[in-house]
Simulated scan of single mutants.
Amino acid sequence: MKRWLAGFLAVSVVALTACGGAAPTGASGSGSGSDTIKIGWIGPLSGEAKTYGVSAKMGVDLALEEADFMAGGKRVELVVGDDRGDSTEAVNIATRMLTQDGVSAIVGSVTSDPTIAISALAESYKVPMITGTATAMGVTMNDDGTRKPFVFRACFINPFQGTAAARFAVSELGVKRAAVLYDRGSAYSIGLAESFRTTFESGGGTVVAWQSYSGDDTDFSAIMTNVVAQQPDVLYLPDYYARVSLIAKAAKDKGLDVPMIGGDGWDSPDLDFATLAGGYFTAHYSDQDTREAVQNFAQKFQAKYGEKPDSFAALGYDAMSLLLDALGRAGSTDGEAIRAALQSTKDFPAVGGSLSFDEFGNPIKSAVLLQVQADGTYKYITNVD
């Protein structure tokens, strides 16, 4: 219970309810003549992806607390919106933040599809936005391959983690026949699946089952019957924890006992650890990483919340820290000034590593590979550059 309460607690916060609550009368707005900077935070504090949002928000709150809620000599006020992992709700919240609450920047969202949806608004209003955790290519890039100049992220991108997972499967697990199951309506799931397939096949493997499903599906027994018939020796499951747990259970029920691999969407305390024990996934962070920045963050997080941080907490912390640093260097709440400061970030000491942005607003950083343990923990395996 403590974890959920901590996820909802905030200091100096104006909360936006799911139906869109207005800021209290008399709240200070951002601007060059104001002593307050408003920053919007958008993410799922309820719904299927709520564990991601709660963790990310905890990391954001810790970063703000360490900065004493100050940036560039101004007081920071956080405006919070629960998008429930829904793109339409994310757009509604972002619109209110930009048109009524006067935010100077947005941190969020947490999952890829809502983040892509609100990125268009950030571009339209020329308000900088940084997500800690949304990995799909479309977050910072338009369909024609051009850059969204006002959008940034603190995490690696889908092609990188899909490639890393495939290389691990081929070189370390020695598997040759893969089954890939993905959500055909999710940019996150599709991006990971495609990059895994490309790299796995180029490494000499064969994708014997390429199976899509709907995001509303809960019964995977028929799909798994088809998959088992293809005799794969590895399953790649690039989806979020709730659906991955259901798919893994269906695989075990059909007697398919092969390694399972996934992406950072597995990183949740609500993952079915017993069923997925022994499986591997690519992640952004491990508290077993011995680097000083990681251990300092883990200790501070543990002291504040009484639990170990996950990847989403670390990336929420990094995203807010990067924005606060840029606000300080920009010396202004002007969107272009903040954008330029973010883009010029060089060797920032983030929990995820020394971070600089490339020309697409993506960080240059490594990933970690973790193994699921039956006791509800993850075992650090290796770093992947």
Score class of each variant (00 low, 15 high):
E307V: 08
D318W: 05
L323T: 04
A303N: 13
L323W: 01
F301M: 11
P309I: 09
A319I: 07
L315H: 05
F312Q: 01
K300T: 09
L323Q: 00
A303K: 15
G306M: 13
L323V: 06
L315T: 10
L315G: 01
K300G: 03
A303D: 14
S311R: 02
F312P: 00
L322H: 02
D325Q: 10
D318R: 00
D325L: 03
K308S: 12
F301V: 09
Y317V: 00
A314C: 07
E307R: 08
D318T: 09
N296H: 10
S321M: 07
Y305E: 05
K300L: 10
K304M: 09
Q299S: 15
N296C: 05
D325F: 12
L324V: 12
A313F: 10
A319C: 09
Q299K: 15
G316Q: 10
S311H: 02
A298H: 07
P309K: 01
Q302P: 05
N296L: 14
F312Y: 14
S311M: 10
L324Q: 05
G316S: 06
L323E: 00
E307T: 08
A298Q: 08
L324F: 09
S321F: 05
G306E: 11
A298W: 01
F297V: 11
D318Y: 03
Y305T: 03
M320V: 12
D318P: 07
K300D: 07
A313R: 03
D310L: 10
K308P: 01
Y317L: 08
F297Y: 13
G306Y: 10
K308H: 06
Y317P: 04
N296R: 13
A313M: 08
L324I: 14
K304E: 09
N296E: 15
D310N: 14
F312R: 01
G306W: 11
L322F: 10
Q302F: 13
Y317H: 13
K300I: 06
Q299R: 12
F312T: 00
Y305G: 06
F312C: 02
Q299N: 13
D310P: 01
Y317T: 00
D310S: 08
Q299Y: 04
M320K: 02
M320E: 06
Q299E: 14
E307K: 02
M320I: 06
M320S: 01
A319W: 12
F297S: 05
P309N: 04
Q302C: 01
L324D: 04
D325S: 14
A298C: 14
L324C: 07
F297W: 07
A319L: 08
S321T: 12
E307G: 00
G306Q: 11
A319E: 01
F301W: 04
K308E: 12
M320A: 11
K300Q: 13
L322S: 07
A319N: 03
G306F: 12
A303M: 08
Y317S: 00
M320T: 15
Y305W: 12
G316R: 03
K308F: 03
L315Y: 05
Q299H: 14
G316D: 06
D325G: 07
S311N: 06
K300M: 06
K304F: 11
F301H: 04
F312H: 06
S321D: 01
L323Y: 06
P309V: 12
F312E: 03
K308R: 14
L315E: 13
L315D: 11
Y305R: 11
Y305H: 12
D325W: 08
Y317W: 09
K308D: 10
S321W: 04
A314P: 02
L322G: 02
Y305P: 02
L315R: 11
D310V: 05
Q302K: 15
N296S: 15
